[in-house]
Nucleic acid binder design. Structure first.
Lengths: 207, 207
DNA sequence: TAGATTGTTAATCGATTAACAATC
DNA sequence: TAGATTGTTAATCGATTAACAATC
């Protein structure tokens, strides 16, 4: 399943395809063409076909894609057919939003550890978990085995948290702090933050 | 200030430049080169120069960019030198995170209206604001004049909220719901959601 | 002046879209 | 069979990077 080298732009569209075919599945539709998907998702049909073709021949000429099969394949590609355990550091408002947002992917993605540096938050109960000190993450990582780390702390401590995660063996990180993280080449980081999004949108307002 | 046609990729980097020069300003540094910025932000110096050059000649050959001047210019370009009033619909965990996240850009970006459809949340106090029914947004829009709308509701009602915002005269929308919104050509929408981000990252985990 | 760094043009790289043979 | 739609190659478009004259 390790394909040539799929571009990030392609990978970022896969969950969108998956979500759509899951909706179709729920609606009892069992076949869909790239043209129909494109219309719904506002994407070029050729792009959808090309994206999917990187991973195999999922469609049938003259017919389209079998919805259930495509959903299963996309789940496999995204590793969403297996349990994914996430360590979340930073239990502020955003961290809380993420924690209580459990319905990720059929609960296959679960937040399995909550950490913070603020003593006031220690042992705070959030869903089934309790907030622990950041120091505990390394110990927990050994028993739990986190696949993804989420950084939801202020910018000034993001790099520190990132370094701790990497020491824990976490190689995939989602960073919500507005800061550019420095990581070794084998670590995969995606940074996105609400402030930056909002500020860039402000460019488009016409006074 | 309406330049040719700046690509979205360029616009999305502007807040990153701004944040960096603001940090430099705080640190008392008054000149910076594209090379230094590139090293810090992990970007190609030529790209930084080219991005900035779309908007004017902000640097001095042989010297670099004057930090304070550049910060002021970037604020102007992003309209962050004027008050920006935001309408936020959906006061769930994410909406709360956004509301309490007031320190956007020197408070120049302010959430000026909070709306929800859940009767249980009506009149709830969040910071200086009270949650109002979605229906009230149109009336408020006339007096307040929102420049940006933020959608923080579940996917199934995102399109509806979007339509209401457009009817209010809002032309710039930030959508946190996992759904592809249909809007007229003159409306600017940016969609980003945590589930999709996390799912696409799952691609990179190696079992 | 010599060294540094910009703004900008040209070259490269990558991503999207069009076109179409294969085939269901 | 005729019509539809895939998978894929080629063409296009756009974004990034390299190179360098201008100049501080």
């Amino acid at each position: 399943m390790k394909e040539a080298k799929i571009s990030p732009s392609v990978v970022r569209r896969l969950p969108i395809y998956l979500r759509h075919v899951q909706d179709l599945l729920d609606a009892g539709i069992d076949t869909v063409s790239s043209k129909e998907m494109g219309a719904k998702l506002d994407l070029n049909p050729a792009q959808i076909r090309k994206d999917l073709a990187y991973f195999g021949e999922f469609g049938r000429k003259g017919v389209g894609y079998e919805v259930e099969y495509l959903a299963r394949k996309l789940e496999q590609i995204l590793h969403l057919d297996q349990q994914i355990r996430v360590a979340l550091v930073g239990v502020g408002h955003l961290g809380m939003a993420l924690s209580n947002y459990t319905r990720f992917q059929n609960e296959r993605i679960t937040i399995a550890g909550l950490y913070d540096q603020d003593p006031k938050k220690m042992n705070m109960q959030v869903g089934k978990l309790r907030v622990k000190p950041l120091l505990k993450i390394e110990e927990d990582a050994k028993t739990i085995g986190f696949q993804i780390g989420i950084i939801a702390v202020p910018a000034f401590s993001a790099q520190e948290v990132c370094d701790v995660m990497i020491r824990c063996g976490i190689r995939v990180i989602l960073n919500f702090a507005p800061s550019s993280l420095k990581v070794p080449a084998n670590i995969h980081v995606r940074s996105t933050d609400m402030t930056t999004e909002l500020q860039s949108l402000a460019y488009y307002i016409s006074e």
